[in-house]
Amino acid sequence: MTDERFDELMRDAAQTYHRPPSAPLDEMWMEIEQRWNDGTVERSNGGRRTRWNAIKPWMALAATLVIGAAIGRASTRSVSSFGVRKLPARVATTASPSPRLDSALSSPYEAETSKYLGQTTALLIALPSEVKAGRADDQFLARAGDLLTTTRLLLDSPAANDQSMRALFEDLELVLAQVVRLQNNHSRTELDLVNQALEQHDVIPRLRTAAADLSAD
């Protein structure tokens, strides 16, 4: 094929290959605003983190135990808790490829999510005693870093299609980010920040509700 002929074909492709329709600007903006209103944008911006001001150190152990219990319950029932049944409106209203994709992807992510929840539970339960005993070493905190990375990957995966699971991931992202920060500062204040992260986002009441819902299923 001559260069000229190939160039001609590529010029044609510029007109015909995945020819874009008009961008649905208003519809997309409504969705972006909705996600903004839901707190996704502000949360990533760090706005909420700066508002932590209540300090209740005794919450650490109780909170992590509650998290552990609820996550444990959620992980054993994760098969029924996310997937096609609870697809959010955003996904459900798109054209056929997306729902098909989500349903096809749910199984591998369920396994990964279950494993992740188990590891996160173990880490959060162990955290207060590890810090108190001065055993929250680099390896322990590196695990928290790995779990934080996994959290962010899961947030971008179909595992987060279920709204309640997404909210849980988002709050765990904040908690784990604070745990990772302990690497540089093992002070009581830093541990308190972890507790505040749990409290600020009403993690415990929400987990109690989630646990009750799961029991009722």
């Binding site: 290959y17 995945h18 874009p20 329709p21 961008a23 649905p24 519809e27 997309m28 969705e31 972006i32 996600r35 903004w36 996704t40 944008v41 949360r43 990533s44 911006n45 955003r90 798109t94 054209a95 056929s96 490829p97 997306s98």
Partner: peptide, 28 residues
Amino acid sequence: FRLAFRLTGDAALAREFTQDTFVRAFAQ
């Protein structure tokens, strides 16, 4: 949106990826 559509060839995906782009961009 145009770039997302060229890369995906799917209007629903392009729309979703455009939204994701701006949500991430505003957050960061």
